[in-house]
Amino acid sequence: MRALRASQAFDGERFIGPVDVVIEDGRVIEVSPARERADVVIEHLGDVTVLPGLVDAHQHLSWDCSVDPLGWHRDSDDEALLEKARENARRALRAGVTTVRDLGARGRVSLDLRDELVADPGSGPRVLAAGPALTTPGGHCYFLGAECADTASLVGTVGRLVDAGADVIKVMATGGNVTPGSLPHEAQFGVAELRAVVEAAHGAGVPVAAHAHGTDGVVHALEAGVDTIEHCSFMTADGIAHDPQLIQRLATSGTFVVLTAGTLPGPMLPAIAARLPALVAHVQALIEAGVRCVLATDAGIGPPKPHDVLPVAVTQAVDQAGVPVAEALAMCTSRAAAALAIGDTAGSLAPGRPADLLVVDGRLDLDPAAVLRPVRVMRLGVDVLDTPVI
């Protein structure tokens, strides 16, 4: 049994400290004010913040962050995709991302990676895997292999994915930005089709995540009863729609909206770059209206989106959208875990939770950029970084 003593902790909702986080057998057994202890080995971490491992609710671990995702998948066999996924999983974990929901991979790649990492928690985060995303023939991300021409095909594919062990079903309610010929503002499925997906998945106890950019797709996903709406950007052919009534519907529904933020400096997708100021204002409107927003990344889809970019998303939410740092952190810890229905095992620093922890250099309440300075990462109590600071 050991205690990590820090000047501060973030428990998933608020800052506390000074604090002792007591760990035994890969679990947190106590979070309490620092005090004298005779029966515990105390590791004095100094002026740091301890927080629950980050939860990235939207990644693509087997994607290579290139400008040509279609070409990457065309030229790579499943073993190459799996090896890239292993590499990206390690990168995510070293940044403090201890849980990843993979929302689009070919075949069994993400499922096989998930199973590998269960046996070797020091090599990557906990993975919730969707497998290939349901889409129309030739539609967004058709190259993942789950094209569905009608409702029967959608329901049948849901059944096959559930039988394969998928943790979540991903469906493309609209087109997207990385598939040639696909338009993000246009709906791909109607309410009836999406509702059939939801009923089939929920009947098997599996949630549904709907990719939706344009407002028609957002409305269809909302009315179909999906569990999370990904992106929710309100894209039009040439901008971002201003739709306060739809934003209020989202807030009233309590549906989780997964914002895919976090971008490194450099060229970004032209459709995003052209809309960036309007997108920031849109995100602010969603948050101010009380929509249950989660902070994630869409890591893998291009060069500005590596798999360790979630901490950058936190700082950009604070600096660009004016989100308070505690709120930004909650959006990728406790609230993200709630959106993924894993709040009892992730996202909070509390007794009984797995010891999936991130320790950063400095006080996050005073310096949000401290989240970019990991000095200790633990996955089920296993130290991940080569030279943890003690």
Rank of each mutant, 00 (worst) to 15 (best):
A3E: 11
A9K: 11
I16N: 11
R27P: 05
R35F: 01
R35Q: 13
R37K: 12
A38V: 08
L45Q: 04
V48Y: 08
T49A: 12
P52V: 08
V55Y: 02
Q59M: 11
L61S: 13
C65H: 07
S66N: 14
P69E: 04
G71Q: 14
G71S: 15
R86K: 13
R86L: 11
N88P: 11
A89N: 15
A92E: 14
L93I: 09
A95C: 02
G96H: 02
V97N: 03
T98R: 10
T99E: 09
T99R: 13
D102K: 14
G107A: 13
L113P: 05
E116H: 11
A119I: 02
D120K: 05
R126S: 13
A129Y: 01
T136M: 01
H140V: 04
L144S: 13
G145Y: 05
E147Q: 11
C148W: 13
C148E: 11
C148R: 04
D150V: 13
L154S: 07
G159I: 00
R160A: 12
V171N: 06
A173W: 03
N177H: 04
P180F: 09
A187C: 11
G214A: 05
T215Q: 01
G217Q: 04
V218W: 00
A224S: 11
C232K: 06
C232M: 14
T236H: 11
P244I: 03
I247C: 04
G254D: 01
A261M: 08
P265W: 08
P265L: 07
P270K: 10
A271G: 13
R275H: 04
V283C: 01
A285S: 15
A285N: 06
I287D: 05
V294K: 03
V294C: 03
L295W: 06
D298Y: 07
A299N: 14
I301A: 09
K305V: 00
P306G: 02
H307Y: 03
A313K: 02
T315M: 09
A321M: 01
E327Y: 01
M331Q: 00
S334F: 02
A339P: 01
D344V: 02
D344Y: 00
R353K: 07
P354N: 04
P354I: 06
L357H: 12
L357E: 12
L358I: 04
V360S: 06
G362Q: 08
R373M: 08
R373T: 07
V377N: 00
V377F: 04
V382G: 06
D383N: 10
V389R: 10
